[in-house]
Design a protein around this nucleic acid. Structure first.
Length: 510
RNA sequence: GAGCCCGUAGCUCAGGGGUAGAGCAUCUGCCUUUUAAGCAGAGGGCCGUUGGUUCAAUUCCAACCGGGCUCACCA
């Protein structure tokens, strides 16, 4: 039975499969009939594509290699063929010749783009100059049953890689990230950089003696940020639990417990809207260091991030969107009220709520009635100032109403010792001199509970156990949170959080 | 949640009230250093889903599903 006949009989059994997928199943059956296991258990790969290319010498010596990877293109020319296979490092061309492979060459006709093979052979340079592997043997390692998107590319005269018809459907790319990663090299690079970034930060913190810890994701009480939580249920205890919106209160409990420096790379969950910079599940680094304050933390963050810049990108400055951003320290430090005065012309310091309201109105900022002065100030800041701050900038000294976990400013009444780092018009870090006065903390929680009672769902919840911990005594402490996804966006010049998260949240397919 | 835009072959995209189009991919034939391989031929479509208007809808209209962008939310 030839392939075409087989195709028509198979058709009735696989009504849902399209022609391309049917072909591949027929080929799979052919392989099995020829006693070839299309899904063997291992392969002795000893070499990687780019190493092979780099190590090649045009001195006539014959160097044997064994590589493995996915077939990305095939050019058949009768009794000889070229294909490119792609491994973790990149692509390398393979030359297969009937004279060398005999029967196995016929078998190669059953292989497709997407199949994974192992190749043994010697390295040579083709007439047109590409370092390639002349196959002596090859082995099927996994037959692919679905057609990949075909992305064609060539190297133009300037040596640039030109890509034709890139796989670009965002829905498919996000839902089937595995495909995106195979065919879009730049996507791979983004995620490799993300990992390098985490490695750099972790190395920096470890080398400073801080302890990486893990704290609960399922919490019976959520806190440490303003956000609505995801709620779930524990059957055995018959209680509702919340997915954490932050790990702040647990990390500070560990400072109470006597650790001088703790940090956690945390997945946090916030039940809010989604957009270019928000995914319901996102990554946050939180760090707490005993006996330090927010001044110390500013120096520390500058060093941490500029070090990561060099580790990840080799430089401290690069283009993000339209702007060249310089991460080298020092960064500007501007008190929040000064920044607002600079960008709006209004001095908000010491103003009562009524005055703030009228200024907001003049600035065309809409604020809910009874929002509270903290909210008004924050609205004005985030509407009119934040978008203007492109270079890394510390905004320091926030109104106390907005910061129930931060310590009162040592000299400026009504403010707390808090900073945010704004880069490219977006908040990147948030840090305080941590509030360790248990009585003050109780009052602040009570203020929050009043807001809650008024219907503010995102006001923080009074956490009696956290207060108990503070009552035992927490040393002066500096704390920091860094949005890892946003930092990755800056480091890889991506403008959507979905492009730095492997599997961003999507609506279910069906 | 609102507004705008999109959904056509495996992928990237044209089209448009009357038999559905291209390139790549696939298949057949030729081709033993090609590389966006080439040459000749072929197959492949519930035109997102469901309704409506119409003699006739993939095309126009509505709703729904999914996606994108912008805004709101993210004190």
């Amino acid at each position: 039975m030839d392939v075409n006949q087989q195709l028509s009989t198979e058709q009735s059994h696989h009504e849902e499969l399209n022609e391309l997928m049917l072909r591949r199943r027929v080929e799979l059956d052919e392989l099995v009939k020829k006693n070839i296991d299309p899904y063997p258990y291992n392969y002795n790969r000893t070499d990687y594509s780019q190493e092979v290319i780099l190590n090649f010498k045009d001195d006539g010596s014959q160097h044997n290699v064994s590589v493995a990877g996915r077939i990305m293109s095939i050019r058949r020319m009768g009794k000889a063929s070229f294909c490119h296979i792609q491994d973790t490092e990149g692509k390398i061309q393979v030359y297969l010749k009937h004279d060398d492979l005999g029967e196995a060459y016929e078998l190669f006709k059953l292989l497709d783009i997407g199949d994974i093979i192992g190749v043994e052979g010697f390295v040579f340079r083709t007439k047109l100059g590409e370092v390639s592997i002349h196959a002596r043997r090859y082995e099927v390692l996994a037959k692919s049953l679905r057609p990949f998107p075909i992305v064609k590319e060539k190297i133009d005269e300037q040596g640039n890689r030109v890509v034709y018809d890139p796989f670009s459907d965002k829905e498919l790319r996000y839902r089937q990230r595995y495909v995106d990663l195979v065919v879009n090299e730049k996507v791979r690079d983004v995620f490799i950089k993300r990992t390098r970034l985490l490695q750099s930060i972790r190395g920096f913190l470890d080398s400073h003696g801080y302890l990486e810890v893990e704290t609960p994701i399922l919490q019976s009480m959520y806190g440490g940020a303003f956000a609505r939580p995801f709620v779930t249920h524990h059957n055995a205890l018959d209680v509702d639990l919340f997915l954490r919106i932050a790990d702040e209160l647990y990390l500070k409990r560990l400072i109470v417990g006597g650790f001088d420096g703790v940090y956690e790379f945390a997945k946090d969950f916030r039940n809010e809207g989604m957009d270019r910079s928000h995914n319901p599940e996102f990554s946050m680094l939180e760090l707490y260091v005993a006996y330090k304050d927010y001044f110390w933390m500013m120096d520390f963050v500058e060093e941490l991030i500029s070090t990561a810049a060099v580790d990840v990108n080799g430089v401290t400055s690069w283009k993000v969107g339209e702007h060249e951003i310089e991460f080298r320290s020092p960064w500007k430090r501007i008190p929040m009220f000064d920044a607002i005065r600079e960008y709006t012309g209004y001095d908000l310091s010491g103003k009562e709520e009524a005055e703030l309201l009228s200024i907001a109105k003049k600035l065309h900022i809409e604020v809910e009635p009874n929002a509270g002065s903290g909210v008004i100030i924050d609205e004005i800041f985030s509407e009119l100032v934040e978008p203007e701050l492109i270079q890394p900038t510390f905004i320091i000294d926030y109104p106390i109403e907005m910061s129930p976990l931060a310590k009162k400013h040592r000299s400026k009444p009504g403010l707390v010792e808090r900073f945010e780092v704004i880069v490219n018009g977006q908040e990147l870090c948030n840090a305080f001199s941590e509030l360790n006065d248990p009585l003050d903390q109780r009052q602040r929680f009570e203020e929050q509970m009043k807001l809650r009672a008024k219907g503010n769902e995102e006001a923080q919840v009074l956490d009696e156990d956290y207060l108990r911990a503070l009552e035992y005594g927490m040393p002066p402490t500096a704390g920091l949170g860094i949005g890892i996804d946003r930092l990755t966006m800056l480091f890889t010049n991506q403008d959507s959080i979905r492009d730095v998260i492997f599997f961003p949240q999507m609506k279910p397919e069906h």
